[in-house]
Design a protein around this nucleic acid. Structure first.
Length: 193
DNA sequence: CGTTTGATGCTCT
DNA sequence: GAGCATCAAACGG
């Protein structure tokens, strides 16, 4: 059980993402194993919010590694990224799915319509809701226990051969194979890579 | 099963 | 005004 050092995140998101698989995400009262992620970059990534440079929304993506970039989309959903790379360079990893490890009762209260536990956190907006993430978490430092958030290595190695494929829900940059998942787990989002 | 569609409001041009 | 790093319900086979 150890917290990941900032140096782990101070690299391009494309390097960090596959190694983030099987790490443990912790928020007050809830815990889950990261099983699906996507990497986003900056100017060279047409699928990224940061593609056209910093804006009020995306400025944290250009900031310090280990902070959270939390954005609101489709008028109703929050999604959570961990900022990667050097200060001044946009990069982040979107958390797309986790396997619930603890606090399932809390998650069920936050997602009352969900019937099967496998659906609690099997998508970026699903896990954000189940973990209680919202705009108040944008910009917090996940490596300094900001808002009780932690990212932990419990000794489970990241998969030697992660499932890899294209990103989900994009109209630009959809060809880049920057999505990774733990092979064989049930609670990842569709389509499977 | 698989595919389609409505919900709903922020962000940037 | 257009588009959106989504979800769940409704529909069809």
């Amino acid at each position: 059980m150890r917290r990941l050092p900032r140096s782990f995140f101070a690299r391009p998101g494309t390097e960090v993402a596959p190694e983030l698989l099987n790490k443990v995400l912790v928020a007050p009262g809830v815990r889950g194993r990261i099983v699906e992620v996507e990497a986003y970059m900056g100017a060279d990534d047409p699928g990224s919010h940061a593609h056209r440079g910093p804006t009020p929304r995306t400025e944290v993506m250009f900031g310090r590694a280990g902070h959270l970039y939390v954005y609101f989309t489709y008028g109703m959903h929050w999604c959570v990224n961990i900022v990667c790379g050097e200060v001044g360079v946009a990069s982040a990893v979107l958390l797309r799915a986790v396997t619930p490890l603890g606090g399932l009762d809390v998650m069920r209260v936050r997602r009352p319509k969900v019937r099967r536990d496998v659906d609690l956190c099997s998508g970026p907006a699903k896990l954000a809701a189940a973990f209680g993430f919202d705009g108040a978490h944008d910009g917090i430092d996940a490596l300094r226990n900001g808002a009780g958030v932690r990212i932990i290595d419990d000794g489970t190695p990241s998969p030697a051969r992660p499932a890899n494929g294209v990103r989900v829900g994009l109209t630009h940059g959809a060809d880049l194979p920057w999505r990774w998942a733990v092979p064989g787990v049930a609670d990842i989002s569709r389509p499977r890579p």
